[in-house]
C-alpha cells in the first residue's frame, strides 16, 4: 500500500466510525428501529481484508453487523442509511433493515441474521464461481461465536473437500453476544479449528490495518490462485455492546480501556502523522468533512426519502410473472 492508499483508508475507516456513531444517535432518536449492531472498534478488519481483495468484484457475505462491509464493497452510504431508516430508497427497499443490507450490483451478497448461516452460502457462491470459471473469490466475514455453529464445520469440510475459492474471516471480538469466548469455546484460538478440515489459516492483530492487509493479501492470493479455502482470524474488539439492546455489563472496564488504547482508526492516524503523510489539523478537517457529509447529505436524504408503499407489502415474495409457473409458453 502507498501512503495515498493509507490516507484513503484512514478516511474510509473514520467515515465508517462516524457513520456507525450516527446510526447510534438515529436509533436513540427512534429513526432506526429493530436491532442495530454497530461496528466501531472492528474497522480494520473489513477494510484491511477487502483492501487486499477486489471489492465489487469478489462476492462478500456476512452476518448482521454488516453496514461497513457493504460500504467498503461500494454501496452508497446514503442507500445503507436509508435502509436503516426503513425507506424505499434503502438498498433493500426498506424490506431488510440493518441486519439485511444487500447490494448485489456491488456483489455485497447480504447480511444474514442467523448466526453461522452464511458459512455454507459462501461455500455455495464459491462453487458457483468455480462452475462458471471466474476469477472472483467468495469472502465470508463472521464473528468468533459463529464458529460454534454446525454450519461452520459443515461448510469448512465441504470447502476443503471440493477446494472451493472461499476465504473465511473470523472477526474475533472475544464475545458471542454477552458470553466471553473462553466460556463458550473449547479451542479459543479460532484459526486452529481450520486444521480439522485441512484448511490453512492464520491469526493476526485485527486492530492494525497494515497487519490485517498483509495477512489478507496472503490469504486472498492463496484462494484466488486456486489452492482452495483459507481461514483468517483477526483479533479485535467492539467498542459498543452486541446490539443496541445490550447493557454491556458483562465486560470489565479495564478490558475496555486496554482495547480502547488500540483503536484501529487512531493506530493508522498516528502512523500517518509519524510518517508526515498527514497532519493533526488535516485529520481534524477530514473528520469534520465526514461529519458534515453525514449530517448534511446522508441524514437529510434518508429523512426526505419516501416510505415504502404499503400497497406493495406483498411485492418481492415470489418472482413476478415467471412463465414457468404456468408451465412455460406451450
Amino acid at each position: 500500500m502507498t501512503l495515498d492508499d493509507k490516507k484513503r483508508l484512514l478516511r474510509e475507516m473514520l467515515f465508517a466510525r462516524r457513520f456507525e456513531e450516527r446510526c447510534y444517535e438515529a436509533y436513540v432518536e427512534r429513526k432506526i428501529g429493530g436491532f442495530l449492531h454497530l461496528y466501531p472498534g472492528q474497522e480494520a478488519c473489513a477494510h484491511g481484508v477487502l483492501e487486499a481483495a477486489r471489492p465489487g468484484h469478489d462476492y462478500v457475505i456476512t452476518g448482521y453487523r454488516d453496514h461497513v462491509h457493504a460500504i467498503k464493497c461500494g454501496s452508497d452510504p446514503k442507500a445503507v442509511m436509508a435502509e436503516l431508516f426503513g425507506k424505499e430508497t434503502g438498498c433493500s427497499k426498506g424490506r431488510g433493515g440493518s441486519m439485511h443490507i444487500f447490494d448485489v450490483e456491488h456483489r455485497f451478497m447480504g447480511g444474514y441474521a442467523l448466526v453461522g448461516g452464511p458459512f455454507p452460502l459462501a461455500a455455495g457462491m464459491a462453487k458457483a464461481i468455480k462452475l462458471k470459471g471466474g476469477d472472483e473469490i467468495a469472502i465470508c466475514f463472521l464473528g468468533d461465536a459463529a464458529n460454534n455453529q454446525g454450519t461452520f464445520h459443515e461448510a469448512l469440510n465441504m470447502a476443503s473437500v471440493w477446494q472451493l475459492p472461499v476465504l473465511y474471516v473470523t472477526e474475533n471480538n472475544l464475545y458471542g453476544i454477552g458470553t466471553r469466548v473462553d466460556r463458550s469455546t473449547a479451542v479459543q484460538e479460532q484459526y486452529k479449528r481450520a486444521c480439522g478440515y485441512n484448511i490453512p489459516s492464520d491469526r493476526v492483530d485485527g486492530q492494525d490495518i497494515d497487519v490485517v492487509y498483509e495477512a489478507a493479501k496472503k490469504a486472498v492470493d492463496h484462494v484466488r490462485s486456486g489452492k482452495g479455502p483459507y481461514m483468517l482470524e483477526l483479533m479485535t474488539y467492539r467498542y459498543r455492546g452486541h446490539s443496541m439492546s445490550d447493557s454491556n455489563a458483562y465486560r470489565c472496564k479495564e478490558e475496555e480501556k486496554e482495547w480502547g488504547k488500540r483503536d484501529p482508526v487512531i493506530i493508522l492516524r498516528d502512523r500517518l502523522i509519524d510518517a508526515a503523510a498527514i497532519t493533526e489539523e488535516e485529520y481534524q478537517v477530514m473528520d469534520k468533512a465526514i461529519i458534515d457529509e453525514i449530517e448534511n447529505e446522508i441524514i437529510p436524504y434518508c429523512e426526505n426519502s419516501p416510505e415504502p408503499d404499503v400497497a406493495e407489502v406483498e411485492k418481492y415474495v415470489l418472482a413476478d410473472n415467471d412463465p414457468w409457473v404456468a408451465g412455460g409458453k406451450q
Partner: peptide, 26 residues
C-alpha cells in the same frame, strides 16, 4: 463430479451450499 455432487451427510451444510450457489445463477 463437478455437476453431480456426492455430498457429505450434512443436510444443513449442503443445502446452504446449494442455496448460495443459486444466488449466482446456478
Amino acid at each position: 463430479p463437478e455437476r453431480v455432487i456426492d455430498t457429505p451427510i450434512a443436510e444443513g451444510g449442503y443445502t446452504g451450499l446449494g442455496v448460495g450457489a443459486s444466488f449466482l445463477g446456478v
